[in-house]
Design a binder for these strands. Structure first.
Lengths: 341, 341
DNA sequence: TTGAAAGCGGTACCAT
DNA sequence: ATGGTACCGCTTTCAA
């Protein structure tokens, strides 16, 4: 019969009694306040150590009026994309002394309630992509950073470049001689996708061309399924909303006995690890930096009022991080030196 | 001069005053206690709505003595592996009403302090892989689940099968006629890797063979670098600790002008998306289920004491989830029907 | 330098 | 059914 391992945690009162001082003094000593004698400081630390005392976060947060935690809301974590954003976010948040709470909205029943609940647990939060509507965002009463999502009045927003690079991509594909284009993805579904489609069309317009958009979920299987139909009468180039879709298309093309890029050019977006091995031409984004910047901005927003309550609020920030075309095999035949392995 | 958007949140006291009742009644009404008149219930709800009142999580948690949040500790989120675990974990935790706090230990200075801090913010936590030492685990005074990590006395542990499937893999490779093996990975670095190496050796032993282990980080670049040396005198088969390493090897082999699997067989572990496109033979694990189970167990542990304080603690649980060999091109030439695309 | 006490924002027991 | 009030565990002002 051993003693129970799950013992009740010691409180500041017990430490105080053991050290023979008041709780106020314990608090000061443990926070290295300069108003404590070295002697008492030592006594308190000793008592705390003996009792394995760790201040309760709840008590502390309640008294301080802050959580020392930030939230991040995203659709899911299936592709590497969001994982990378979260990683950059957590890393930077941790450096700045904030824990991170995550919330995925994908298969959730009441997203709005979940987001509101999260808002009650953090000092600020990042909202990625189209996870919650503008009205909800506007109604949240805490520092916010929008990531890869259309701006909302008065809220900081950070994105990666979609349109311009998509236009570049279009130009590149035109250079291969492709004329019949199809965009595979749903511009309605995500702002990023909308931007890519818009950029593609802008690029094609210069050649007097256009491309229909075939809605498609951002998953590999969806890409394969959509391709099965499209490949009966394949276009010259299939521009996919992201790499997962494009990889699905490659699979379907192989099954259909089509050669990429001879019979059909295919491009993606994100530069997943798999894209490299599939020889997929795609677009690379500084995803990690996206998350890191969000965390940094949030930290700034959270502390700016505290630091100087009289300072007028800084105007909402906007930033667009550059993206980069990655040319591989799948978009058309290139002279060897133009290719990247 | 508009009013500040960041207004101070309303408290239960203000709602009480506005509704003309006591805070006790507000609390009851909002939690749908049956001891409140329908009339007052309505009045309170109205007052709460007018003030946009949301109960403070801190106040609530402090009073209830629980966070309604779980933690999860993992090395990083670079590969898809941990992301998938976290995803399964968050999904299930959310269903069970718990928020999720994440903590990555990778580039962190004081891991132990960070883990202890996290412990103070949650009701229970999952610890993945070798992120913290046994002593620290044993010292944590809250419900815990160990994931993909050697058991610690009295703590629940869940893993995926390594040894047995690695032995299967060895047998399969021997069937291809391979005799000279090298294991690429550091058995010291992670318990999963150790298990895979042990299983491989067990399998080779049946043929009177052995395989040296060449330490290597679990990253693609590390695989490429390590392969550059090894490929001067290539073994028959290079068994890699995970897919990222194996993919790095494939890249190196291509650069060296070696054909896989003719000149060299290569295998990985994890079945990343990229593995499929690289034709890499590997092992698939129910990663998501790993995280989901951890969340479920944790929920059970957290609530078992509360539900029935007199119940004797359940013995530490152990579970090993099955894994599955995925045979593709890279391990050797197969008759077509034995292959999986 | 130290202590007493007033919050922080709720929950739930005990009366009425 | 409702109100008063004692916590929950800490920080911080105000006095001494």
């Amino acid at each position: 019969m051993k003693a129970l391992s799950k013992t009740k945690a010691a409180t500041i009162y017990e430490v105080a009694r053991r050290a023979g001082v008041s709780i106020a003094t314990v608090s000061r000593a443990l926070r290295d306040s300069s108003l404590v004698t070295e002697q008492t400081r030592a006594r308190v630390h000793a008592a705390a150590a003996e009792l394995h005392f760790t201040p309760s976060r709840l008590g502390r947060s309640l008294a301080e009026g802050r959580h020392a935690a930030n939230g991040i809301v995203f659709p899911d974590l299936v592709g590497p994309y969001y994982a990378e954003v979260v990683l950059g976010y957590e890393e930077t948040a941790a450096e700045l002394g904030a824990s991170v709470l995550i919330l995925t909205t994908h298969g959730r029943r009441d997203t709005v309630a979940a987001v509101r609940d999260l808002a009650g647990r953090v000092d600020g939060m990042a909202i990625i992509s189209d996870t919650v509507g503008d009205d909800v965002v506007a109604g949240l009463d805490l520092p916010l950073v929008l990531v890869a999502r259309p701006p909302v009045d008065g809220v900081d927003t950070i994105r990666t470049r979609n349109e311009r690079t998509a236009t570049e991509l279009a130009t590149h594909l035109l250079g291969h001689g492709h004329r019949r284009f199809v965009f595979l993805g749903d511009p309605q579904a995500a702002p990023d996708v909308a931007g890519r489609y818009a950029g593609l069309r802008a690029g094609l317009r210069t050649a007097g061309l256009n491309a229909p958009a075939v809605p498609c979920e951002l998953r590999l299987e969806a890409g394969t399924a959509a391709a099965h139909d499209l490949l009966r009468d394949p276009p010259d180039a299939l521009v996919c909303a992201n790499d997962e879709v494009a990889l699905g298309v490659l699979l379907a093309a192989e099954q259909a006995g089509l050669d990429v890029p001879r019979d059909l050019a295919v491009t993606g977006w994100d530069d997943l690890l798999a894209a490299r091995f599939a020889g997929l031409s795609t677009v690379r984004q500084p995803i990690r930096e996206l998350g890191a910047t969000a965390a940094r901005w949030l930290h700034g927003r959270i502390h700016e009022r505290t630091a100087d309550p009289d300072s007028r609020p800084v105007a909402a920030r906007r930033r667009v991080l550059p993206t980069q075309l990655v040319v591989r095999r799948s978009c058309g035949t290139h002279p060897p030196e133009a290719r990247e392995s």
